[in-house]
């Protein structure tokens, strides 16, 4: 009984200390911010209820987009090698093959209407400023036309097998133009010097971000970087919830590759240790019965 009391005192003191230096300190240093919004409800320039016309969308895309963007899946290869494209635009323009699958419909429509406001980058590209975003606004298109483009992009988006394949594809399409993933043998498609000039700083390698930032932080950060890191030049990329989960899953597969092995081994080690502890207890009882 007395020993249990001592144990309770120690557990209480350790518990208070732990609470102070972990959950409490974390809460003070990283205050809760507003939750991720996967409907991008702040964007209202385009009426997304309009049903898009795929055939008309194709005409519009071929007339307006493929001069800069590759759409490999629809038979439009890149106009020039990555390094040249990066040198021309500042960053390699994205291949639009996966756009319909990965980006939220509302975000995509409003992005076409005005990229800078959709990305939350007006601090970097202020109206009337010296810098302009490489892609122009298509605010001269009607809402119907924009929705036609969106419908076309959604229609050509390839079916990707769920799991590792989709995770990697989403990461490459959403992050891979700026960020490298050394532990996954992925190098940013925009050359490092070019991207540094374009962004103002070299975008970090993301190999260990699943550990250094953690899933919770990434969940909010990718959805809207400005909420957690005001003033950053990283754009809001507009991933839908599923695509964002795939991106984070890929970061975990690469950055914490042994997670499954760790958890399985952990259970076995704890069962083994528990058996050891019980045997030790029985042995102790036997030995001490002779001296008490």
């Amino acid at each position: 009984m007395k020993e249990l009391k001592i144990l309770a005192v120690i557990a209480t003191l350790v518990g208070i200390t732990y609470y102070g230096i972990e959950p409490y300190a974390h809460h003070v240093m990283h205050p809760e911010v507003k939750a991720a919004d996967f409907t991008f409800s702040d964007l209202k320039n385009v009426d997304t209820k309009l049903a898009g016309n795929v055939t008309n969308g194709q005409v519009l895309v071929e007339a307006n987009c493929i001069a800069c963007h590759a759409i490999e899946k629809a038979g439009h290869p890149a106009m020039m090698p990555n390094a040249d494209a990066a040198a021309s635009y500042g960053v390699v323009p994205p291949d639009l093959s996966h756009a319909g699958r990965m980006y939220d419909k509302n975000y995509l429509a409003n992005f076409i209407f005005d990229p800078v406001s959709a990305m939350h980058l007006s601090h970097k590209y202020p109206v009337g400023g010296t810098k302009t975003f490489p892609m122009p606004s298509y605010n001269w298109m009607t809402g119907q036309e924009i929705m036609d483009v969106v419908a076309y992009l959604q229609s050509i988006s390839p079916k990707v097998k769920e799991g590792s394949e989709a995770n990697k594809a989403s990461f490459e399409a959403a992050c891979g133009r700026c960020h490298s993933m050394k532990y996954g043998q992925l190098e940013a498609t925009t050359p490092v010097d070019t991207i540094k000039t374009y962004m103002g700083a070299t975008p970090p390698d993301l190999s260990q971000y699943i550990k250094s930032r953690g899933e919770h932080y990434l969940h909010g950060f990718i959805n809207d970087p400005q909420v957690l890191l005001a003033g950053t030049s990283m754009p809001r990329v507009g991933l839908n919830e599923k695509a964002q989960e795939e991106v984070i899953a890929y970061m975990e597969e690469t950055g914490d590759r042994k997670k499954a092995e760790r958890e399985a081994t952990g259970i076995n080690v704890m069962i083994y240790t528990f058996i050891f502890a019980m045997l030790a207890y029985l042995w102790k009882r036997k030995i001490w019965s002779e001296v008490h």
Partner: peptide
Amino acid sequence: LSKDFFVLGFFLLFFFYLTFF
């Protein structure tokens, strides 16, 4: 030591919980 091993057993259970999880 028989008593220490008993204490050690339960301590290691705590330690391995922290190590893995």
